[in-house]
């Protein structure tokens, strides 16, 4: 893409996507897409509805199988791995609609995501020891739910559910965090807190965010990729993208 990216050696990127294509019965939702994410970068993907943003995340985390192309994460080809293996090598993903376990408490939600005892026997003999409890407490206060640990998750507000899901990812300590519209449906003050949270948690990881809210995007993005009909339309800093005539064309219409 940009000259800057091309000059770098691929291994400097945490995530590199090359020539990624997926076709649903002939319809190419993602079409020959290439994208590179650096260490500790917050990358935002924007684009109109149906542009293929969610599908890109699906392809990275293995939820959808690519028709062709490669997804490389820290030198590993993700397209060959199963979903849970992709998680285990350090990719965390938040879904578009808050996806939490409503029948369990906030504590239990976080505990399940704690990366230990992930096979059958491990889960059966998992013990809630001090390490787990401390970690859960730490994450809970980070996502502003420190005093809600014993509450069933179904009682949380929509914004709190979004945070909880982010927390469930944080407790896994992924190197690449992917968030699909994390502030959708949040109040203004919740958005602010979320932006703050994202800044805090990117200290030692890369983040890939899909978002519509431009204010929020400006707030957090290091760089922005504009997706349109499955292809990159424009890429770069928010200023650059905003002044790109192609982007204006697509967003403001004909």
């Amino acid at each position: 893409m940009s000259a800057l990216n091309a000059a770098k050696k691929p291994k400097d990127f945490v995530l590199s996507i090359e020539g990624l294509t997926v076709s649903f019965d002939g319809f190419k939702a993602v079409n020959d897409l290439s994208l590179y994410v650096e260490e500790q970068e917050i990358r935002v993907i924007i684009g109109p509805n149906g542009a293929g943003k969610t599908t890109v995340l699906d392809l990275i985390c293995g939820r959808t199988k690519a028709t062709s192309g490669a997804v490389t994460f820290k030198g590993q080809n993700l397209t060959k791995l199963k979903e849970h293996q992709i998680v285990q090598v350090g990719v965390g993903r938040k879904f578009q609609n808050p996806s939490i376990y409503e029948d369990l408490t906030v504590f239990e939600n976080l505990e399940i995501s704690f990366p230990r005892g992930r096979n059958v026997w491990g889960a059966l003999f998992f013990r809630r020891d001090a390490e787990v409890i401390n970690k859960v407490n730490e994450i809970a206060s980070m996502i502003f739910l420190g005093d809600k640990l014993d509450k069933p998750a179904e009682l949380l507000s929509h914004g709190q559910k979004q945070w909880l899901e982010i927390g469930m990812l944080l407790i896994q300590d992924p190197e690449l965090l992917m968030l699909d519209e994390p502030v959708a449906g949040m109040s203004v003050s919740e958005r602010k807190l979320t932006a703050e949270l994202l800044h805090r948690i990117t200290k030692d990881r890369s983040v890939l965010v899909v978002e519509h809210d431009m204010q929020f995007v400006e707030d957090i993005a290091d760089r922005v990729t504009v997706l349109h009909q499955g292809k990159t339309l424009s890429e770069g800093s928010m200023e650059r993208v905003k002044s790109d005539p192609k982007v204006i064309e697509v967003y403001l219409g004909h």
Binding site: C61, K82, H84, V87, F95, S99, N119, E165, Q172
Partner: peptide, 9 residues
């Protein structure tokens, strides 16, 4: 799906 994407088979 959430369980799967929390690293469990």
């Amino acid at each position: 799906d959430r369980v799967r994407f929390s690293g469990y088979d």
